[in-house]
């Protein structure tokens, strides 16, 4: 249900909010749907936040990808 609301409540360009809750997390007002999904976003769960491209392959480079500790973290 949450998933369906999430998909339904988002539009690509206008401000979107993934959750319909009585008190929405404020920061999520600024969430925008990714237009270009980097190739390796869907490879496995270790890469879910890793837009790890150089921008030369047509995908969106994420210069601030911090998720390099997944393989070493259990917290």
């Amino acid at each position: 249900m949450i998933q369906r609301d999430f998909e339904a409540s988002v539009r690509p360009v206008i401000p979107a909010h993934p959750f319909e809750l009585p008190s929405r997390p404020f920061g999520l007002h600024f969430a925008r749907k990714n237009v270009a999904v980097p190739q390796d976003l869907t490879c496995d769960k270790g890469t879910k936040t890793d837009a790890d491209t150089t921008g030369g392959d047509g995908s969106t480079p994420n210069p601030n990808s911090n998720e390099v500790l997944d393989w070493m973290d259990d917290d």
Binding site: F6, E7, P25, K33, T49, S65, E67
Partner: peptide, 30 residues
Amino acid sequence: HGNFFPGGGHTYYTIYTSLVGEELLSQREG
């Protein structure tokens, strides 16, 4: 903590640095 937000399936959201407009002040309880 990072600016990627998984939306389920192949859907991802990005939270970019954004100006907080006056229209959002009413939502500040969040």
